[in-house]
Design a binder for these strands. Sequence first.
DNA 1: CCAACATATGAATATATGTTCATATATCGA
DNA 2: TCGATATATGAACATATATTCATATGTTGG
Lengths: 116, 116
Amino acid sequence: MNNIKKGHICDAINQSDEPDIEVLYDLSELFKVFGDSTRIRILTALTAGEMCVLHLAEHLEMGQSAVSHQLRILRTAGLVRPRREGKTVYYSLDDDHVKEILEAGLEHILHKGGRF
Amino acid sequence: MNNIKKGHICDAINQSDEPDIEVLYDLSELFKVFGDSTRIRILTALTAGEMCVLHLAEHLEMGQSAVSHQLRILRTAGLVRPRREGKTVYYSLDDDHVKEILEAGLEHILHKGGRF
DNA sequence: CCAACATATGAATATATGTTCATATATCGA
DNA sequence: TCGATATATGAACATATATTCATATGTTGG
């Protein structure tokens, strides 16, 4: 499983000033939530303001159930927040970090993809 | 499949100043690459400087093959860049966007996770 | 309370994905 | 050229995940 030998050439970088492994795991879990086009479209739609489930489903041209499932994942990850008003539940971005992450990724896309 | 009715209450946000759907798909694909703990650990390790494959494998305590497979994904996504020197291939972060994305996510984790 | 509407959720299914194993390619030294 | 080392890759397998369908929960108006 681990065909590795010690005493190799590049013995440079080993300052453990990097985030510990558990945080890195959480970080990958966070990005995993961003790593689905349906959820990205939901988050992007919500950057304009809160929206209810049916309107999200309509906007994404997807079933209500699918959207609801994805909203649960976003909610659990602390990325969106529900606000109930009668029968309707309005969702909004939970904090500004979400926008920042989206924008950081978008910047990379726009610079790498050759789209300009 | 699409049990949605028109003429709903929340008829607010519909300015299409949001990135078009293809870009959002690319964006989700980008985050998908960040959404794996092995790849996150590789990227984080590389923020300190370039490193060869065997050392990465050693650092992650994983097999060389697994790391190589993940490096290919990172390379294809334009996140890391290889530099050959004899038999060894050194990998480094391709551009500064990578760090920015990592930091944006990390900020969210550290503020949400209650770790302070 | 009951019907209608809005949302949430469990089970099932199909697809995507990460790791392992075996092997291929590439580079260097003798 | 041959053996050793470093990396890359294809196939297989096990696991994770997104969507659908059916149904449950919650809310309002009559």
